[in-house]
Write a protein that binds this DNA or RNA. Structure first.
Lengths: 202, 202
DNA sequence: GAATCCATGTAAAGTGTTACATGATTGG
DNA sequence: CCAATCATGTAACACTTTACATGGATTC
């Protein structure tokens, strides 16, 4: 430990840092490009704004987990293209196999918890809308999945297999949301216990 | 607007505030009791620590959305039992019918995005563990659901119908996680695209 | 010439976790 | 007597969102 620079294996990263490293394993990118790439398919399960991404890239760079090269940018500042370093990849690999503990947060489920306090018709409309939204998303995701399978991305050996895996989770989640929202809307509309799995006029 | 106190309908609450109001619609409770109650079934989709709950109760009280009565507590401070006020209930009802926009966050899905960067056997073990965990949770949730149905909580007219609705979402979510984790573990174990819906020796 | 995209950053405010701090009561 | 439960709070830190700030290049 001579100068406190370079690959210090004692450094700990944030989840956002590992998310950015994951994105950079697809290839070098600028902060701006990462901001776009985090939108899909990762955005269904993880989001970050540019205001969070730029400082985090600086931290990753200070930790020696990414390298950057500067080019003349369009604006007043230089454009920086980042790439993962070997120590960054090692850190990512170590983080990946740690079982996650974070609990999910779902505002729509929280609202269901208090469903009986609100107007039943308005709440039923909320969950009917949600069911429609999930139908749209499922159609969209199914198309994406078809395209990925055609490109061989459903093979675990493909470098972008992770994109396919995340999309599959999106499909499973939206199927779950759709079934639940249909059931809940039916309950609230009729005012009586509804059976599960019946689309009921959707 | 005379004194700046009482029910000021312009006040805006945080999601946590509405979560606490939702819990209090089940009946008056202390901050400590709310801390316990937020664990299940709501805890599968929303959590909060006591350090967040106590200050939020103070804010709700200042907004006139809850009332509190003090009793002699066991410790150095008085024990406060909170109850929702009519203006608090009105605020909750208004919030409930606003369509939520917050995106869910899932660390386990984020890790899947970078699955190909890690050791396949270690990653397969991670998702096999996840599948086992979801199996355990599903058995637990099924029992809870059975108990609730026996108590008539599956009726939208029951005051605790929301507990049942949240539990149903828990069941749907865990089913989705189970199918996905089994598929992903099979992919990583065999190194080849796996078919969906086959439990594959679980 | 107006809008959008590319591209980078900072500041302030809000939300959430971990740790600190106190003390009575109950059961083993 | 030790541990857990009941019961309430604060402080410091980490994470996230919203808003502020700049300015070139491209397209309508």
């Amino acid at each position: 430990m001579a100068a406190g620079e370079g690959d210090d294996s004692a450094t700990t990263g944030s989840t956002l840092g590992y998310a950015l490293l994951s994105l950079l394993t697809r290839g070098p990118a600028t902060g701006y490009q990462l901001t776009q790439q985090v939108k899909a398919p990762l955005g269904h399960f993880w989001t970050a704004r540019h205001s969070q991404i730029y400082p985090e890239l600086a931290r990753l760079s200070a930790a020696g987990w990414v390298d950057s090269v500067e080019q003349a940018g369009p604006g007043p500042r230089a454009k920086k293209t980042y790439a993962v370093t070997p120590s960054g990849l090692a850190a990512l690999r170590a983080w990946l196999v740690i079982p996650p503990t974070a609990q999910p947060r779902s505002e729509i489920t929280l609202k269901a918890y208090a469903a009986t306090s609100a107007d039943p018709a308005a709440m039923a409309a909320l969950y009917t809308d949600l069911a429609e939204r999930s139908t749209r998303l499922l159609a969209e995701f199914a198309q994406d999945a078809e395209r990925m399978r055609a490109a061989g991305q459903d093979d675990p050996g493909h470098p972008r297999f992770g994109n396919y895996a995340v999309l599959m989770m999106g499909i499973e989640s939206q199927r779950a949301v759709h079934r639940w929202a249909c059931w809940l809307a039916a309950c609230l509309r009729t005012g009586r216990p509804a059976a599960y799995g019946e689309p009921a006029g959707d």
